[in-house]
């Protein structure tokens, strides 16, 4: 009898909240970000990180375009705020801005401070080889020399594979094996080897607890199905972009 009553109570409670839910848009923000942005101003924190965010007035890049699309869908104007990632994240934590972009990658330290979207792009990183006549990529990386940008996060996994890691400053050397995101290697005309050394999981950041706003951003990102084309365009337009250096 007790269990029967308990179960009924549970269903009643669920039903009541289900009825209330759709009527007033569910989930809702704790601080009402979405309502404020709609038809108003979207404050976006940007950190330079080509091809995601490219410095300029106005800024350009893959994520800048995404942010513009979100604002357009809400009939909002965008105000761009340049800053270091740590500054922008602190401002976001205190709800001074609404969105932070700049090639952010999923990581537990960020999750403690702000709310991250689910990764909208999971981009494998590996090694690309110059496409010589009849030359195929080697079977393994043992003893291979791989050139990587000075700012990179592939040195450790490359060492683990037995590769010799040579960092370069400035433009990438031609005719050499390079390490980087697969899309970036392809854009440089290299043949991509079968290794996935890291997967770069790209996210955007919003304030904690703004669940309606987060859901809207997430839904927009989920709806983007031409990301490879966008990345290819961006890497043509901004050839210096090295793909995902966000730290």
């Amino acid at each position: 009898m007790v269990t029967h009553g308990a179960r009924r109570l549970l269903w009643l409670a669920c039903l009541a909240l289900l009825l209330v839910g759709p009527g007033c848009r569910y989930p809702r923000d704790v601080e009402g970000t979405l309502d404020r942005v709609r038809g108003g101003v979207l404050h976006v924190g940007v950190t330079e990180n080509p091809p995601w965010v490219v410095r300029g007035d106005p800024p350009a890049g893959v994520e800048v375009d995404l942010a513009r699309e979100i604002a357009a869908a809400l009939d909002a104007r965008v105000r761009w705020h340049w800053g270091a990632q740590s500054e922008l994240i602190a401002a976001l934590e205190q709800r001074q801005i609404d969105l932070v972009i700049g090639g952010l990658r999923d990581n537990p330290a960020l999750t403690k401070q702000v709310a991250l979207t689910k990764p909208y792009a999971k981009l494998p990183a590996g090694v690309g080889f110059p496409a010589g006549a009849g030359k195929a990529p080697p079977d393994n990386l043992d003893g291979q020399t791989v050139h990587v940008p000075r700012v990179n996060h592939l040195a450790d996994p490359l060492h683990d594979e037995g590769a010799r890691v040579v960092p370069f400053d400035g433009p990438p050397p031609t005719g050499q094996a390079l390490g980087g995101a697969h899309w970036w290697l392809r854009a440089r005309g290299l043949t991509v080897g079968p290794w996935v050394l890291r997967t770069e999981r790209h996210v955007m950041a919003v304030p904690k607890g703004e669940n309606a706003w987060l859901a809207l951003v997430q839904r927009h990102l989920n709806g983007v199905d031409d990301l490879p084309a966008r990345l290819a365009d961006a890497s043509r337009a901004y050839p210096d972009g090295q793909g995902g250096e966000s730290q």
Partner: peptide, 19 residues
């Protein structure tokens, strides 16, 4: 006063509120 975040996930091609 921590504001809990409950996001959206993709399930069977639909975006569903994690709640």
């Amino acid at each position: 006063m921590e504001h809990p975040t409950i996001g959206v996930i993709e399930l069977f091609g639909h975006s569903i509120w994690m709640g």
